[in-house]
Design a protein around this nucleic acid. Structure first.
Lengths: 219, 219
DNA sequence: CGGCATCCGGGAAGATACTG
DNA sequence: CAGTATCTTCCCGGATGCCG
């Protein structure tokens, strides 16, 4: 049987309502894995190695009945409501990047890294860059510009290209080492190293607070 | 004693890390109740009627050891890390407001309503308004301006003033009726009804994506 | 193999009663 | 007022098995 009546906060607060819909364990991480396009059941499992199959099945059912996910041709995709969760995930990334206890050596899915970069990019000072990524065989393209950030699956034959394990590329992006010291090791970098460094300099796990007003007063 | 080892997603993803810290049930709602200043244990319970005392105790302990909450003079307050969660809560509000199934007749805490308004205000087209609120005895002051929104506890003797039950005021703010039809009933409104309507027109549960202005319901 | 159903153990959530 | 103690309920998560 379906759970008939799911656990609810029973509040009129819209944040509580949101948490009624996507507050269950794994739910937002499933959204994360689907944000760049539909995925098959096994691909979802590969991106969420900690989830067990029956929990993923249950989550997908619940999220489908909540209107966030729908079964598609060979797998599952987000509905527009599900895609609307990107700002939530982005806010989580920007907050979580500043919190201690983060262990970048733990498993990271290619989608998770690419989305975290979209969340953490200082796009207001971004020049135009076209960058291809190949992370454990999965291809992505990033195009930055002043105030804009485009991220898609697939390759574009961009002048810059990173390839390697997701965690290794994450170290290149967020770690302290300059690109010319990183590239030789676990990842492969193609393109101009100066522009590659300029691109990587856009990303930091610790977001500058925006400068003006404290968060508690405005926002 | 402490839970020794808390459940974790064991991922390097920073969103997963964030959820490790504030993904537990009730955690973000506790943050919500504390965002406008410290609260006593009983005040937290009053703002979260669905939580039981032992769960609240446990959550506060865990959130304290995660560095989000600290025991203060008579109760509990947020640390800077905890206050940094406002963008997450704001994103949840803005997403949840557009999701079906929301029941505004359910319990709503004064803090929840005031924060939801800060999240949903179309502040880019806000004129300057000073508004006092008294919700079930709790006082708040809102000052809007173009692009700004200040919200604090306490009264400022503002020219506009709403008083009443939280849910009734929420209906006035988000509901379809114009102020002159609402005010007579469950809530009390003091001040110029035109300016009051202009103020209320800033708020909608459904955020227009590109910033297009929702239809005014004053006419 | 991909997807889903079922059974079971452990642990968190939840209700209630009680204590300093 | 601010929790603690205890009991029950339910969800999570692992293992297994069924069916396409």
């Amino acid at each position: 049987m379906t759970g008939t009546r799911r656990r609810s906060y029973d509040e009129g607060c819209i944040a509580a309502h949101a948490l009624d819909l996507i507050g269950d364990r794994w739910a937002l991480l499933v959204v994360r894995e689907l944000l760049l396009g539909p995925r098959r059941f096994s691909e979802l499992r590969a991106g969420l190695p900690g989830i067990s199959a029956n929990i993923l099945t249950r989550r997908l059912e619940e999220m489908a009945s909540a209107g966030l996910v729908r079964a598609e041709a060979p797998g599952y995709g987000l509905t527009p409501a599900g895609e609307g969760l990107w700002p939530v995930l982005k806010a989580l990334c920007r907050w979580g990047g500043g919190q201690p206890g983060h262990d970048p050596t733990l498993f990271m899915s290619p989608t998770a890294l690419m989305l975290s970069m979209r969340a953490m990019c200082a796009r207001h000072r971004a020049g135009r860059h076209e960058v291809d990524f190949v992370l454990e065989g999965q291809a992505f393209t990033v195009v930055t510009g002043p105030g804009s950030y485009r991220l898609e699956r697939g390759l574009a034959g961009a002048p810059l290209r990173f390839e390697g394990g997701t965690n290794a590329v994450a170290v290149a992006v967020y770690g302290p080492l300059p690109l010319h010291q990183t590239a030789a090791g676990l990842i492969r970098f193609d393109g101009g190293i100066e522009e590659g460094q300029a691109f990587l300099d856009l990303f930091s796990l610790h977001i500058a607070e925006g400068g003006a007003a404290p968060v508690s007063r405005s926002g």
